[in-house]
């Protein structure tokens, strides 16, 4: 039997002394796309930050295994190098650091971890251009400082570009559709779908069903009060759209 890509067992976590994640369980195998849907304040973003090791998010119980390794013992950069990527809801602006410099450091850090030789500037630019072209991105974007002065749509496009270049084993999308028009949404979805190769997996965290029309999940989970209250296939998302979250929260 193959090891699951991600195995979350009875995870609890808190932020600022407030328990947000309570007894969360989820297993993602290679090649699967899971959607986690939940109302505002359910702890969706907290879950994504805990998985990426953001400082300030304290795990109080349970365990997380990534490719059979103890994820919680790793630093944020080790998690990224192992193949976890968080497509952030609010990407951070980094004045003075051009996208190329930032992304080149990231690519080479991941490559070094995989014992691959460093990409020189020429080959790196070539790679970024190719991936950018597939996503229909403006080539000028990579010369600008990371996210500085970017519109909401541009920020998500840049997140998608990073994901396409870094090719993570597990992409976590945190409200990837928030504030996006339909064109930008399609760029993000195309980027994610291009990575669906039967091995790579996705964890799509979202509020609305809309995104799931473009990134079709294999499994849908309803997340409320810090844990999963119901799991099903993609039809569950449609059901949620009809009934809202209230009914599910009561079920527990």
């Amino acid at each position: 039997m193959t090891i699951p890509l991600l195995e979350i067992e009875d995870l609890s976590a808190r932020v600022c002394d407030k328990e947000i994640i309570k007894g969360f369980n989820l297993t993602i195998n290679e090649g699967e796309v899971h959607a986690v849907m939940g109302p505002n304040g359910a702890g969706k973003s907290t879950l994504s930050y805990v998985l990426c090791g953001k400082p300030g998010y304290e795990v109080t119980g349970g365990s997380v295994w990534f490719k059979g390794k103890n994820l919680l013992a790793m630093s944020p950069e080790e998690r990224a190098r192992e193949g976890i990527f968080l497509c952030m809801q609010y990407p951070v602006e980094i004045p003075g650091v051009p996208v190329t410099t930032f992304l080149k450091h990231a690519v080479n850090a991941v490559r070094a971890h995989q014992n691959l030789p460093e990409l020189d500037t020429m080959n790196f630019i070539k790679l970024v251009r190719e991936e950018g072209k597939k996503l229909g991105l403006d080539a000028e974007m990579i010369k600008r400082p990371v996210n500085v002065g970017f519109s909401g749509g541009e920020k998500k496009r840049l997140e998608t570009l990073q994901m396409s270049v870094l090719k993570p084993m597990l992409s976590i999308l945190d409200e990837a559709d928030s504030g996006l028009d339909i064109d930008a949404l399609k760029v993000v979805a195309d980027g994610v779908n291009a990575l669906r190769d039967g091995r790579r997996s996705m964890l799509v965290i979202t509020h609305y069903q809309r995104l799931l029309n473009y990134i079709v999940p294999d499994y849908v989970h309803v997340f409320a009060d810090g844990h999963i209250v119901k799991s099903g296939d993609k039809s569950l998302a449609l059901e949620l759209e009809e009934t809202g979250y209230a009914g599910f929260i009561k079920e527990k």
Binding site: C52, E77, A80, A106
Partner: peptide, 16 residues
């Protein structure tokens, strides 16, 4: 140093 920017970079694999 902007802690959010540091985390953002680390979450992409760049060492602290």
């Amino acid at each position: 140093l902007d802690e959010e920017a540091l985390f953002y970079m680390r979450s992409r694999g760049i060492g602290g």
